[in-house]
Design a protein around this nucleic acid. Sequence first.
RNA 1: GGCCCCAUCGUCUAGAGGCCUAGGACACCACCCUCUCAAGGUGGCGACACGGGUUCGAAUCCCGUUGGGGCUGCCA
Length: 466
Amino acid sequence: MTGVTVRVRFSPAPTGFLHVGGARTALFNWLFARSVGGVFVLRIEDTDAALLREGLVDGILRTLRWLGIDWDEGPHHQSERAGAYAEAVAALRYSGHAYYCDCTRDDVRARTRDDAGYDRFCRDRGLTSGAVRFRAPDEGATVVHDVIRGDVTFDHAAIEDFVVQRTDGTAVFLLANAVDDMDMAISHVIRGEDLLASTPKVLLIRQALGDDHPPVYAHLPLIVNEKRQKLSKRRDDVAVEEYRERGFLPEAMRNYLALLGWSPKDDREILPIDDMVAEFRIEDVKPSPAFFDVKKLEAVNGEYIRALPVATFVRECLPWLETDPPWPPENFDLAVFEAVAAHVQERARTLAEVPAMVDFLFLDEPAVEEVAWDKAITQNPAAAGVLDEAIACYRDAHWDSGELHRLTAALADRHGLKLAKAQAPIRVAVTGRTVGPPLFESLHLLGRDRTLERLARAKDHLPFSS
RNA sequence: GGCCCCAUCGUCUAGAGGCCUAGGACACCACCCUCUCAAGGUGGCGACACGGGUUCGAAUCCCGUUGGGGCUGCCA
């Protein structure tokens, strides 16, 4: 790597949002650039008119920033480099490397052979308008040097005369890609394996354009779904933005993505970004596809959530607590949430599940889970007694979680119950759920009045209430 | 169909010929801890796709088979 300026690029097509696979590609380019002191260029591949709608790029940039992936150059837009592409196409035509073709879509279909694509019908017709096709060599082969896969050889016989410029004069990505990578002096091309098969075409164009410094390639393994297919916009949850909305932290997302195809030398999986940069080696990336496992992502996210200082955790939770909360907004009390935060933080795998863990504190009536209520109260023979006595001894209790704990333990004792059993009807009566933050801290925060009110209400609903 | 890629526990991976009766993590199960649930601790289940070579020795190298995937657009 000495003596050569490392320049990499992430070049997404503007589809409106950043795809999980794209994010991983961006991350690996970024890690590589940062690890060797190279330059990370952002380039928008919008050569197709359909991709020129306003705003399609914004989401991608926003999400890259959210992930902490910054760029040193760009974003360049291919839509603004039409001149350079036109020049390149003209050069290819003059040098005999490309020719006009007026075949229609149907013509091409009819002329496509099973083993080598378009049959080159227009090659020597001397047309002066239409789409422009690259004259692929009839013999020989092109070798793609890939640091992840080794040398991959493509026989020219299987490479068709592909289109480099559309009838409307715009360049297709193969051409734009070749020209831009040369003009921008890209030294390493790191992208998804789905592009491996198109690489010899780009190499052929570059060669025809006089290039003698092809970049080093690294084709990353595809990220696949449970059926081992490439993640697709249609059937899979691929928008990184969506994971953000589902309560994942950017650091966790980034860390998990880094683990798809790469791993540090030791047995660590959770590691700070600086360590990743320090240890990242593009040649260590595995060539085989990786399944995007949301369960594992959640586990990683849980680790990151727990590692947060409580105050930071509280701040991160705010959007979930203040925007469209399950309780009347005016009921929310930040001080109360801050008091339970540490308990919630230990239990949450995503920020999105936080509201349900604390809703009993801000709801006028607890959100009752039918199954829980039925099991712990209605169908529980001990419920009436426990509830009655809880009301009796909580009424004059010193309102403190330790004291509530002691009183309830004594209560359980008198009923010959384990505290675990005795607390169940109380918890469900007060919070509506069987699980949640520690009960006595919860009661303490809820306050005596509301606690007694909810216990009484639960008791009243019992079929044989005393 | 053609071209290309890939192949270690269910999943993500460690493993670059002997350190491997294959290690870690997630998931799952059990137990411990415990006011529920988590967290934490301990343990368990669980893999080198198959067949040939090469070698004193192969998860590691080679070939083949099988399986999976990608590409095959005037999308990128």
